[in-house]
Amino acid sequence: MAATASAASSRDRVVLKVDGRDYSGWESVRIARGVDRAAADFTLAVTRQYWPITAGMACEVWIGADRLVTGYVDDVAHSHDSATHRIDVSGRSRTADLIDCGASNRPGQWLGQTAQRIADELAGPFGVPVIVRDGGAPIPDHQLQQGETVMESLHRICAMRSLVPTDDVNGRLILHRPGSGGTAGALVAGQGGNVLKATVKFSQRDRFHTYIVKGQQAGFDIADPNQIAQPTGTATDPNIRSNRVAVIIAESQADADICARRARWEAANRAGRGLDITVTVPGWRQADGRLWTVDQITSYRDDIIGLPATSLLVAETVWTKGPDGTLTEMKLAPPAAYQPQPVVPLNPTLAGFAGLLRDELKRNG
Rank of each mutant, 00 (worst) to 15 (best):
D141Y: 12
T114H: 04
A103N: 10
D97A: 15
P129N: 08
M151E: 01
W110P: 02
I157S: 08
V164D: 03
Q145N: 13
L111P: 01
S90N: 11
A96K: 01
I118S: 05
D120C: 10
S90L: 02
E121S: 13
D141V: 09
A123D: 00
I118T: 09
C158G: 09
R92S: 00
N105T: 14
G91R: 01
Q113R: 14
Q143M: 15
R156V: 07
A119D: 01
I157C: 11
L154T: 08
P129R: 11
I118F: 08
L154W: 02
I131H: 06
W110F: 06
T95Q: 02
R106P: 00
G112M: 04
S104W: 06
S93W: 01
P129I: 12
W110A: 05
P140N: 13
V164K: 02
Q109C: 09
G102P: 03
A159H: 10
T95Y: 03
S104G: 03
L122K: 06
G112R: 03
G147D: 13
A123R: 05
Q143K: 14
R94Y: 00
A115D: 05
E121A: 14
F126D: 01
L111Y: 09
G135W: 03
G135Y: 07
G136Y: 08
P165R: 06
D134R: 11
G127H: 12
T95K: 04
D88F: 02
L163Y: 05
V89N: 04
A96E: 06
V89D: 07
I118V: 11
C101A: 15
L163I: 06
D100G: 08
R117S: 09
M160W: 10
D97Q: 07
Q116V: 12
R106N: 05
S104H: 11
P138V: 06
V89C: 02
C101T: 06
V150F: 02
L144M: 02
P138R: 06
V128I: 15
P107Q: 10
R161P: 00
S104A: 11
G91H: 03
I157L: 15
I131C: 02
S162C: 12
A159P: 04
T149N: 03
S93N: 01
I157K: 10
P125Q: 09
E148D: 14
A96C: 08
G124T: 14
A96D: 01
V130I: 12
R94F: 00
Q146T: 14
R94L: 04
S162R: 11
P140A: 07
I131K: 08
R161Q: 13
M151Y: 01
R106Q: 13
G135E: 04
L122P: 02
Q116R: 11
P107K: 11
R156Q: 11
R161T: 11
P140T: 13
